[in-house]
Design a binder for these strands. Structure first.
Lengths: 162, 162
DNA sequence: TAATAATGCTTTGTAAAGCAAAGTAAATAT
DNA sequence: ATATTTACTTTGCTTTACAAAGCATTATTA
């Protein structure tokens, strides 16, 4: 094993740990705030103003089916309101209710807040370093490359080599 | 919004994107390799040698109940074999079958592989930078540290500096 | 030794996320 | 007028995950 591999492994270990913390956190969120992570995602998308189910699906990166189900729950919780569009009666506008807005405030993404709070206290050079590394990693894991390629095929990797 | 907050936001965006890719990938893995991420995790733990269900739960950070369920599936797929312990008949040893071992080889964590392959090609300074940033982030998100931690403890960084 | 407690795992019941496929209704194109 | 497309919902299924209860088995203690 080369040195690069060792560093890579330790990077991966960190990455796994990060994933794990995020995961744990979202379960915690579900337990305490009775708002699961994906429902919160939907609410936050709606915080930018009313929109349609399809748009939510697209922005959240999940299927329309799932969005419908999430909306059903959120509507049952009275956090969200549906309304058929007047001009195009196929479409359904979704908007936050006042309670929905309150729910977002009451159940903020704490993990994110903690992150930002601490991040803010780091020296500037380190902030830049972290941001740069993260954006580099998104490249290392590039979604497009993965989507395009058959997963069990090794081909596409070279394309992004260099 | 301060500059630090802007950088922090962009870091968070990257982080979200990373999480998203990992998520997508694991669903993809499930579809193509008929081995879901969590099952693969269990198999990989078993790759270090036979162990008990409780230990697997601990190492994977999931409940024993869940481990039992996963083992049921894996056993049904003949990737894993259970055997009551002789000395303590409450315990159940779990080990990989040859098929199980083959499954691990056939369905490697490709995301990880892609990451490592690309990572290896980065200049050394960048490798170190990324590894350091990641380890720093685990601190920024650390669940434990949430209660106690001295926020400006610089300790871990120096180690990976240079 | 017999009753009690602790341990290790499984079962059962519950809830969420998520998708594909089929279905419905409305708008658009032919 | 008919066919196609679009937008959303319903249905049925799978997986993950946990808590609570249950079942053996071992250890402890009276």
């Amino acid at each position: 094993m080369t040195e690069a591999d060792q560093i890579g492994e330790s990077a991966l270990t960190s990455l796994r740990r990060i994933l794990r913390v995020v995961d744990t956190h979202s379960r915690e969120l579900a337990r305490t705030a009775s708002l699961t992570a994906s429902r919160l995602v939907v609410l936050k998308i709606l915080a930018n103003g009313p929109t349609t189910a399809g748009t939510i699906a697209e922005r959240a990166g999940i299927s329309q089916t799932t969005v419908t189900l999430l909306l059903n729950k959120l509507e049952a919780m009275a956090l969200v309101r549906r309304q058929r569009s007047e001009d195009d009666r196929r479409r359904v506008w979704v908007e936050l209710t006042p309670q929905g807005r309150a729910a977002i405030d009451k159940a903020p993404d704490l993990l994110q807040d903690v992150f930002l709070q601490r991040f803010r206290k780091l020296p500037s050079w380190e902030q830049h370093g972290i941001a740069a590394s993260l954006s580099r990693i998104t490249y290392l894991l590039d979604a497009d490359a993965l989507d395009a390629a058959p997963l069990l095929d090794v081909g596409p990797i070279d394309r992004a080599a260099t």
